[in-house]
Amino acid sequence: MPVKSYSRPKPPEQSRLTDRLASEWAEQTEAAEPVILEETTRDGIVHVFVVWSDWASLTREQRGEIIMDAAERVKSKDQLLKITIAMGLTPDEADRFGITWR
């Protein structure tokens, strides 16, 4: 019996949001959202917080996956390895986290 590798297909919504985030990240348009916050620590580690209403129905894991998939398209491998936090939040969640993003 053949053994094939299998990975769960991503919901179409996830692919669409990944495309959109990568595009916003690369072009840095004036769109109100998503808001991409990159915090670089003293030791060069990068925390990425993305505030976006559109992913309210997605889990934290899915949002983080979208951020990392988008980052893979716009960052070098070295930059990518320095990202240790990829946190996707809605505006309400970001406010609760005490993140200044507006």
Partner: peptide, 12 residues
């Protein structure tokens, strides 16, 4: 339950 901890959650 709906959002199992990720590595990002751990660091925060």
């Amino acid at each position: 339950k709906a959002n199992p901890e990720t590595l990002s959650d751990f660091l925060l």
